[in-house]
């Protein structure tokens, strides 16, 4: 059946650090392999999103200057539409800076906390005494139970699904989840949201935030599929919709290799 998805890539020329663009490459290819018609539209400075037009937003992390550069534009031209869309269940994935910007406060390069969009109830603060500099390194998390349960049930035919997600974090901001927001995963290796809590990333409705670069989706094909599945299910209002189970041999080998090598037992 001819499914179609519209993906919106927010600020591809400003927020594109550490392979974040790889997430779009993966979503596009997987849609192609599954026979889903997929359109990616860039939305950059000065552009205004069309309400109700997007099925999945992606926003990556940027260098400090770039993050500062987009914040006013985001508030003035994009925040309202994105808030309305995500409240209606549209899928959103933010990585690192893109995650922080969706919260109430985010961290500027000079250590200043600045108001974010406040679409999800998280706050990002400057690192205190608990972390000396940045949180940098391999990051492995165990997916939250409800997400994992849904993932295992979303395929048309059975396939092995890792419970873990793997990536590489590089951030100084310390993010704390507020009421109504669930963690994406439990941190097994690395820091994740902050140096003291043991969770990584966030979920509110279909808005997901994560500190995983790496890129996030290539080595976590199950999570990539989950985003596609949520987007399709919402768009076509079909709770019985199932995804074809792609082979994923290379992806899962890379995934398990990372878990083994950097998982420390």
């Amino acid at each position: 059946m001819p499914y179609a998805l519209t993906l919106t890539h927010l600020y591809p020329d400003h927020l594109n650090l550490y392979g974040d663009t790889g997430n779009l490459i993966v979503l596009k290819r997987r849609c192609q392999w599954m026979g889903i018609d997929c359109m990616v539209q860039p939305l950059t400075m000065g552009d205004r999103p069309t309400p109700g037009h997007t099925d999945l937003y992606f926003m990556g992390g940027g260098q400090d200057n770039d993050q500062v550069a987009v914040v006013d534009d985001f508030h003035q031209l994009k925040a309202d539409t994105i808030q309305a869309d995500t409240e209606a269940g549209v899928v959103f994935l933010g990585v690192c800076g893109g995650y922080q910007l969706m919260g109430h406060t985010f961290l500027m390069g000079n250590g200043e906390e600045t108001p974010g969009l406040g679409i999800i109830n998280v706050r990002t603060k400057a690192p205190g005494t608990e972390v000396k500099q940045r949180c940098i390194g391999n990051l492995i998390g165990e997916l939250s139970a409800d997400i994992y349960t849904e993932i295992t049930a979303m395929y048309a035919s059975p396939k092995p699904v890792p419970r873990t997600i793997v990536g590489f974090e590089n951030h100084s901001g310390q993010t704390y989840l507020g009421q109504g927001v669930a963690p994406l995963a439990k941190t097994r290796v690395g820091f994740g949201n902050n140096a003291t809590a043991e969770d990584e990333g966030a979920r509110y409705r279909n808005v997901f935030g994560s500190y995983m670069h790496g890129s996030l989706l290539p080595k976590n094909p199950h999570f990539a599929d989950y985003l596609i599945w949520l987007a399709l299910r919402r768009k076509y209002q079909d709770d019985t919709l199932r995804l074809p189970a792609l082979g994923d041999r290379e992806e899962l080998e890379a995934h398990h290799y990372a878990v083994q090598r950097y998982g420390r037992g």
Binding site: G19, I136, G137, S215, P218
Partner: peptide, 9 residues
């Protein structure tokens, strides 16, 4: 570089 994300860039 310990981070291989650059392969995607």
């Amino acid at each position: 570089g310990k981070d291989v994300s650059w392969l995607w860039d």
